[in-house]
Design a protein around this nucleic acid. Structure first.
Lengths: 342, 342
DNA sequence: CTGAAAGCGCTTACAG
DNA sequence: CTGAAAGCGCTTACAG
């Protein structure tokens, strides 16, 4: 049933050895241009597709890219995955998914065992796994190339890996400026999960904008959240029940912003009239909630694609140690109803 | 770096041939209990894990389960995938994802080519792909076992495959009864995408409940939607702008219900006071929107797990033709604020 | 109930 | 620039 065209068929038709076909398929050097064309023609005529199992067995690798994640939002996962899949498919690579419980006591061992057993060629780490020094260090020690899709923490220890990200701090700064420009001075802030470096970057951006505008950050209006709806709601209750009620709240992601809006609705506060709310991530929710939420769009899909391409390069160069470069992509501030001015 | 323990190591330690180890690993019959135990002990002591590439090459299969989808909601995909992954991992199977554009002219050929090339052992079809007769027929002709995760259409043609589902019609019936019990008589309905069989089942359930209650279905209050936010919004505008404005609207999924709520908010209609709104799917959105949305919860994750197990059984029995049985799982009506009575 | 042989379709390491 | 040989780690098909 399955495609039965093998490398031998191609070799025979092209009048060369299978080794030459292999060279052409793998884009190896040292093949005469004329020969390459003949082989390529045979491949196309026969619709040859190399058998991944045979490649993997002989080549001692899996032709698999691994994506490690810990309970991300569904849309984050779906978008990232779509980008990774695009790049993998283009390179005849497969995708292996690995849900990881970040807080499990033997998490690092479990991941390493999985990496060994599946023989993954490269790993993409999502937050907060990418922010876990012990994990990243162990993966690097294993010799598996990896890329983070989140902003790195301070310093540059052994856990530094290349990262594909947006400038989280700058994005948060611009969002805060957006609120300040609309006349808000008393702005509440809900921090993200402390295990994510992104949380501190976003908070830093908020503080920077406030200071630039000569406004004081009232720490009573800064609450700790955990990137989920419930924590946003809890923080919203604290902020909106306070004596010094803010006129705007910047939640570090959309789910928490939705929690704040929930509370505001319960308190019969008009959004944005009585309270402006902004988030971060541009999840589908942000467009469907009422009023629609002002937020920051990250090109998650593109991030997944780029991260995969970096890994593919590292693999082909056989450079287990990819350079810990920061690849920054553009973000976009989406101004919507929840912070409308006028 | 990677695990280097091979079947030969296990055979040597257990004092048997590699064939016997193979039998134990694959749970084949004809192994003395005592022998099986010895081998099992050696496997555990050595932490042996069979090499998938070698298995696949020698066995002429991929040990891969395929999931085909066409732009589903992120949470649907994430949940289904989580369930499939659970079952796959337990069986030492991998998961291969295939995004398919349902409306592409050469869609069937593309899917078949992918199935051949990847040598997928079994396929899980999500709607609306599972509702596409040409596609299902072609996959069956290829000899690849497949399972649908959506309710089948009427009749039982050649395109019938086993399905793991909830009783969509009954769920919609109960939801309608829920509205009727709250005193609603003038109920609007927004149909789902016509390419999904689920749409007609949900509509049928709505009509059945209305008839049982002796209420007439005003076809002017039945609008065509496409399962997305925008179409829900458009339908909402039509329904709420009509002379005979309904007091409740049943949208065939949550995204469309969110669209209706958006319109209601714009028109300053109170929910549920002026208008009750209910949806279907229990997406994260339904819990985070204001007011929270009454909806039907489908156990998507469990559906994915069951579907995979069915496929695994079909594969091990070497029964390409799984029986077209309907496996029904329980749904749950989640009554929330958007239809609160009192 | 158990095993020896052949081979799956490639890549590696080497030779020329 | 090209190829012949060996072997990756399993399963198949067969023999006993």
């Amino acid at each position: 049933m399955a495609g039965k065209v093998t490398i031998d068929d191609v070799a025979e038709r092209a009048g060369v050895s299978i080794k030459t076909v292999s060279r052409v398929v793998n884009r190896e050097p040292n093949v005469r241009e004329k020969t390459r064309e003949t082989v390529q023609a045979a491949i196309e005529a026969l619709k040859y597709r190399p058998n991944q199992a045979a490649r993997g067995l002989a080549g001692r690798r899996s032709y698999l890219m691994g994506v490690l994640y810990d309970n991300p939002s569904p849309s984050y996962l779906a978008n990232l995955q779509a980008g990774v899949l695009t790049a993998c498919t283009a390179a005849s690579y497969g995708l292996a998914l690995s849900p990881v419980s970040h807080s499990a006591p033997d998490m690092v061992d479990t991941v390493i065992a999985w990496l060994k057993h599946t023989n993954i060629d490269g790993a993409i780490l999502t937050p907060p796994l990418s922010d876990n020094i012990a994990l990243v260090t162990a993966i690097k020690a294993l010799g598996v190339p990896c890329v983070a899709v989140s902003s790195p923490g301070p310093g540059s220890g052994p856990a530094n890996v290349p990262a594909v990200v947006i400038d989280e701090e700058e994005a948060a700064r611009q969002m805060t400026v957006h609120l300040i420009s609309a006349g808000h001075k008393n702005i509440g802030f809900i921090k993200g999960h402390p295990d994510h470096y992104a949380s501190s970057h976003r908070y830093a951006g908020f503080k920077a904008a406030m200071e630039e505008a000569g406004l004081v950050v009232d720490t009573a209006l800064v609450k700790q959240g955990y990137f989920d709806f419930a924590s946003g709601k809890a923080a919203g209750e604290l902020l909106l029940g306070a004596a010094n009620r803010p006129s705007a709240i910047f939640a570090s992601n959309d789910d928490m912003a939705a929690g704040v809006m929930h509370v505001a609705h319960q308190l019969k506060l008009e959004i944005p009239g009585d309270l402006a709310v902004v988030g971060f991530d541009d999840t589908p929710l942000s467009r469907q909630i009422w009023p629609s939420l002002t937020t920051i769009r990250q090109p998650i899909r593109l991030i997944g694609e780029r991260a995969t391409e970096l890994l593919l390069q590292a693999i082909s160069r056989d450079t287990a140690a990819t350079n810990p470069v920061l690849h920054q992509l553009d973000f976009e501030l989406k101004a919507r109803g929840s912070s409308a001015t006028g």
